[in-house]
Design a binder for these strands. Structure first.
Lengths: 345, 345
DNA sequence: TTGTAGGCGTTATCAG
DNA sequence: CTGATAACGCCTACAA
């Protein structure tokens, strides 16, 4: 593997000219250009990306910050997988590098070093939540002008670069559908309130119920953590309310699936004794028995757009892109239309 | 954001000493050490990783080469997701960076630039297949001593760093199970032969059948490409053989699921009219109706081990780690025990 | 169109 | 234990 100096020598030019050829910036004589390229080819010379980055003072890399989720294979999760795929597509098209950044539970959140150490030029934050330390870390980032983009998370009171989906509307439509099916006592197994999308779903839920003149029964509001396990665990509470609950709206498909399994073990038949709805429209939602009614969220698109927004603002100082909010879509399947409707009260 | 020079000045030491403090290599007076650290803290100084890499001549990152799969969200695939999660875990524990490298169909395969340009210190190849250009690219890599590790792929005649699973045994056991269920005419919907794991499955299939004294009927050997769509398409062929086929062994769960959907549309009931078995033990295999009999493959572990092997050989020249082959495990569910056994011939 | 030379922030070697 | 001082490989004015 030859060095630039060797190439220069062999081609009878200066090292600077070799660089110019590889950067294709300055206009130059075609003959020298070819001579350099041939010499490089012969010597097996490849410019060092590291040195380029060093000299240019940029990393050419965008980082994807992944939350720490204990005992879960993150990529095996529809949510992260799709977003990451979308980011991957955009990043590849832009010729940047994609660095995966795993957050660890031990060290406290501080994104600044990533930028200051030039590891990344920008970051996309996945699974961010509104907890004091996270908010503070992002504020620091924003203050120092480091570009980043949030996906599926909104921070009240902040004007940050973000790509969200309309979960208020998605939930609203879903609950309206449940009501239309004749369900009145609709339990809501939500995720943690630290996520704006959880809060948005609750809004949609309340809105639909209020509109239908159905009073909210706070005892029907349960909280899980978006894991299958937490859905499974919730089955016990739901079963305890049996007869008092027509339907359950779970904040994501994973919880819905866990819930269905849990209910089944307790002798309650999902789709027969009780209606179940999920959220996300994951692959799995098509495979359950009965197939899950759910809400489609364009995660792939969201990832792609987040990356593109980052490219758009990297380099410039104007960081005032208006927040993006993509539409969601109700997907009706069989889990919400009870095969055997419960008897009239 | 202060510079090293400022820190040095503020702490009353030389720049070299500042570096030493941050590398914690040379023994030094605790007082100066603290003085430097304080100055750095006050000035908000962070060493530039880029400069470090440049100076050290290493990138500190390992790349994961991902195949180009048109129209598929790669990460939403159980196979890649799990392996990647495993790699991620190991990489995080080792303090390295994880760079995602998307192969593109246009440019021809050449991994050397990645190393020569110092983008990566080593690579893990996912979804590699035995095609001339790929083999050649890997040979070049091996020849020039660049460390890499293959996952779930073996190249006949090469002594490369690889982590594989025992697919011969997995398939053998699966087919034996099908035979034990009374199935005799067992179709095999395999993936492309360019993948060693496809060939291994065929071996296991042949072995089990031979051992049972069942002649191989070549007309029962179909080829898909591991996509759900290809499984769906195969349903037509299988249905055409109806009555002549007791069971179908699909090379992965995705194809099995597509096949089940396709058969159902053609009026053939999976698990009732015909037994179906998959491979991989993906999450989805638990959710189908009926649940899929399949073979568990420790993909997560394989990814983790691949990364660790890379760390083990990066830096050293001895690259003669013996290939690793992990055990697979038969998972029996309901899709292979026909509810309504076919009538005796 | 091309050459020259300074600088980028660290590491590492060598003195002291 | 600490301070100079060459590399490291490339980029980029500035000159010619």
């Amino acid at each position: 593997m030859g060095t630039r100096k060797q190439v220069a020598e062999s081609a009878g030019v200066s090292e600077a000219t070799v660089s110019r050829v590889f950067n294709g910036v300055t206009p130059m004589k075609e003959s020298t250009r070819r001579r350099v390229l041939e010499a490089a080819e012969a010597l097996g010379y490849t410019p060092s990306v590291i040195a380029q980055r060093f000299a240019r003072g940029v990393s050419g890399t965008i980082g994807v910050v992944l939350p720490y989720v204990p005992k879960v294979h993150l990529f095996s999760t529809y949510y992260f997988s799709e977003i990451l795929s979308g980011i991957g597509e955009a990043v590849r098209d832009n010729g940047h590098d994609l660095l995966l950044l795993f957050r660890s539970p031990s060290e406290d959140t501080d994104y600044e070093p990533l930028y200051k150490s030039q590891k990344v030029d920008g970051c996309i934050m996945l699974g961010a939540s509104d907890r004091p330390d996270e908010r503070k870390a992002l504020q620091a980032l924003a203050r120092s002008g480091h570009p980043f983009c949030l996906v599926n998370q909104h921070y009240e009171g902040e004007q940050w670069n973000e790509v969200d989906a309309d979960h208020v509307d998605g939930s609203y439509r879903l609950v309206k559908h449940l009501l239309a099916c004749g369900h009145r006592r609709i339990a809501f197994l939500n995720g943690q309130a630290a996520y704006s999308n959880s809060r948005d779903r609750l809004k949609g839920y309340r809105l639909a119920l209020a509109e239908a003149g159905v009073a909210i029964d706070e005892s029907l509001l349960l909280e899980g953590n978006y894991s299958r396990t937490s859905g499974f665990a919730a089955a016990r509470s739901i079963a305890g309310l049996r007869g008092a609950v027509d339907a359950v709206f779970a904040g994501n498909d994973r919880m819905a699936i866990g819930l269905m399994q849990g209910l089944r073990e307790l002798g309650v038949k999902p789709g027969v004794d009780i209606a179940i709805a999920g959220y996300d429209d994951s692959d799995a939602s098509r495979l359950t028995d009965p197939p899950l009614t759910t809400v489609h969220v364009p995660f792939f698109e969201m990832g792609r757009i987040a990356a593109e927004r980052l490219f758009a603002c990297t380099g410039r100082t104007e960081e005032a892109l208006p927040p993006e909010k993509l539409a969601t879509e109700l997907i009706v399947r069989q889990s919400t239309a009870l095969a055997r409707p419960r008897e009239a009260d």
